[in-house]
């Protein structure tokens, strides 16, 4: 079976892929799907805090804006933050791990010690420190998340490269006169790609949670940006009466993170035969 077929045959992974596809679709089509696309920035103070009904599927917020529309537009921010932050982390972490693992020696050790320093503090704490210094904005959240997340990839790729280096086919390639660059990119990278892909899927979920927490703490985009974490923090003072206000963005985060985690689990089963989920 091809990879895609095997992936879709796994029920959990298929649900995960479906959830992510839905998120991407919603983000792209937000202006079309949203019943009140203007409500990202428009206020209707006479319609404040209306419970969900046929017009306002998820109710309205403290400014009278349609929550359903805002959640749809929030998907764009969520995707942008997760894709860019994780993308940058991979782009920085993978080459560092590859070079440090391939050459080893004191320079490799030094690179890994540098990543140890970043890993010495929990990611969210360091991200808070960076985002706080730079000031609240989506760009700074992305910067804070990338600056704190690359060591995870460096570590992973370093370990995998070290394990791969002793393999006979690498020695063979070197004996045939392949350059170091060629060995790293054409021989080692494809063989450790599955580990990177699995980690990326799970990392996307984790990044979305961290980004939402930063938004919740007021370090994300300033209002009226429809960022999900910020929306939840806005809803706080209107609980328990306006229960729908926090419920909608909370469920949105839950579904998206769930999607990436399920997909990551499924990918691991397919790509990494060493850690198959239990004996069936």
């Amino acid at each position: 079976m091809t990879g895609l077929k095997r992936l879709l045959a796994d029920r959990a992974a298929a649900i995960g892929a479906g959830l992510i596809a839905a998120l991407v679709l919603v983000a792209i089509l937000a202006p079309v799907l949203a019943p009140f696309p203007g409500d990202v920035s428009e206020f209707h103070l006479t319609e404040r805090l209306l419970p969900p009904d046929a017009t306002h599927l998820f109710g309205t917020d403290r400014m009278g804006s349609d929550l359903f529309s805002r959640i749809l537009f929030g998907a764009r921010i969520t995707i942008a933050i997760a894709v860019i932050a994780v993308g940058v982390s991979v782009a920085i972490g993978v080459p560092i791990g590859l070079v440090a693992g391939y050459y080893g020696g004191w320079s490799g050790g030094l690179l890994m010690r540098a990543s140890d320093i970043f890993l010495a503090v929990p990611q969210i704490v360091l991200a808070i420190a960076i985002a706080q210094t730079l000031g609240p904005s989506v760009e700074n959240v992305i910067l804070a998340l990338s600056a704190t997340y690359w060591p995870f990839w460096a570590r992973l790729v370093y370990a995998e490269t070290r394990a791969m280096k002793g393999q006979v086919f690498i020695e063979a390639a070197q004996a045939l006169g392949a350059s170091d660059f060629r060995v790293m990119v054409l021989h080692i990278l494809p063989n450790i790609a599955s580990a990177i892909i699995v980690r990326t899927s799970i990392g996307m979920g984790a990044t979305i949670l961290t980004a939402a927490a930063l938004g919740f703490l007021g370090l994300g985009a300033p209002p009226p940006t429809p960022e999900w974490g910020r929306t939840i923090s806005e809803a706080r003072e209107f609980l328990p009466e306006a229960w729908w206000y926090a419920a909608a963005p909370g469920f949105a985060i839950f579904l998206v993170v769930m999607g990436f985690n399920l997909l990551g689990d499924g990918l691991r089963d397919i790509l990494d035969p060493k850690i198959r989920r239990g004996a069936k």
Binding site: L209, P240, I253, V257, L262
Partner: peptide
């Protein structure tokens, strides 16, 4: 267990607080 890992903790905190304390 998969769900437990996908919930934003601050959201769960608010919902539990709303149900058990306020309601």
């Amino acid at each position: 267990s998969v769900s437990g890992l996908a919930i934003a903790s601050f959201w769960l905190a608010m919902e539990l607080q709303m149900l058990f304390s306020t309601r």
